[in-house]
Design a protein around this nucleic acid. Sequence first.
RNA 1: GGCCGAGUGGCGAAGUGGUAACGCUGCGGACUGCAAAUCCGCCAUGCAUCGGUUCGAAUCCGAUCUCGGCCUCCA
Length: 466
Amino acid sequence: MPLNFKLYSTLTNTKEDFVPIEAGKVGLYVCGVTPYDFSHIGHGRGVVVYDTFARFLRETGWQVKYVRNFTDVDDKIIARANERGMEATALAQEFIEAFTEDAQKLNEVTPDVEPRVSTHMQEIIDMIQLLLDNGVAYVGDSGDILLDTTKVDDYGKLSKKPLNDLIEGARVDVSDDKKTPTDSVLWKLAKPEEPKWASPWGEGRPGWHIECSAMSAKHLGKTFDIHGGGMDLIFPHHENEVAQSEGAHKCKSVNYWMHLAFINFDGEKMSKSLGNFKTIRDMLQLVSGEAIRLYMLGTHYRKQLNFTVDALQASETALEKLYRTLKRAVDLPQTDAQDLEHFYGYLADDLNTPKAQAEMFNTATDLNAALDQNNLEKAAVLKAKLVKMGASLGLLTYEPVKYLKGGYKAAPEGAMSDTDVEKLVQERTTAKTEKNWARADEIRDLLKAENILLEDGAEGTSWVRK
RNA sequence: GGCCGAGUGGCGAAGUGGUAACGCUGCGGACUGCAAAUCCGCCAUGCAUCGGUUCGAAUCCGAUCUCGGCCUCCA
């Protein structure tokens, strides 16, 4: 029996008990990136949160199908490719690969399916045809196909925006094609030099929202369990997805909508359009991927996270504490993890990762205490628990000694080599044996200036790179 | 203007009726040649403000202030 859990749904704006469509199974669709640039840490938050969610579901007995798309056919991609004088498909491919690399550095378990618009044209065209057949779409004067938002039941139900308010408050330049300002383009006829695909309405490409309706239906069915994405997608992207999917299939499309809050920077939303974004790559120059992950899971996913480098580095320090503990525990015998009810219970409450983390840190403290008391039996059990909790959150997967020596982050410019460090440590050990404290301290200070900290233990001296 | 959401110690951040988790930082002690690490202990009589409900509120209700987001491409 899988563990029951609660999820806050944007559709009802309440925390709800999750009820699967099919017993024991969860279908999860998340809106991925439009690959025209390097991904920023806001995208990273999405990677980490939904990955953690999928891990949680699997560990608690659910059979999960996790689908995350790439919108690889898009105006911004075309524009950027033109700037660079290259094919749009090549540009998209380049940034899909970059995204995948970043996601791996963040310890993501790759989603089960990563569909792309470019390989789902037939599904998209079929869906547009259905919308036309159902009278929910129309052909505009220019020949583009548009969604008729006035023909959709309850348009605005997800974002809680009454259609009339939207029409009145419309700030968009109303194109001549649109019967109503809120209507959106389903199929856009190609201009010269633009990528294009054949369709019954002429060569062109899909509009922005239809691809997710088509791809989610193909991979998860007309009605599926959970749909995720950033808060900013609620309107218009997800609202239109609902309208299209339900307009085409005549049934409820998504049971639970799980939206992620933003990362802010200097108190303001970080986004590509504002130009104030930090890429995942930038952050990986400063700290390890797991530190970024720990940082992001330290704030609940529905709360805005105001990004600061100081806080990120505090997470790296906190992670070091966990790895120091594991390093001490490295020789303990393997046992099964137990006593995880509380931990999973926290995650089952709308993915409360901060609370789950607290449990992890408390366990580390207990483990250190058990080791101090030389209670190895207790320590082994605690270690198994700690490692298991870490794995659930996508953490503590590094090799502790290597991690503490800085092996999982970018080496700073002109850093002292491991070999040179070892040499000095050797020399200091000799000095210590001779009780030459002055020389020993001198070496320690010298290494400290290189951000290397020495730790004298019963079994000799070990070192850590800060 | 409409609709979301937030304001908790030096910093980050949980907690939604029973007396403030956790992390970083700081302080004291143990340990150490001295350190570091680790452990033990301490650090918000108070949770934006003002009222109210209640035996009891950070948590519920009302008002006010401040901030962020969506309403246009955005995770």
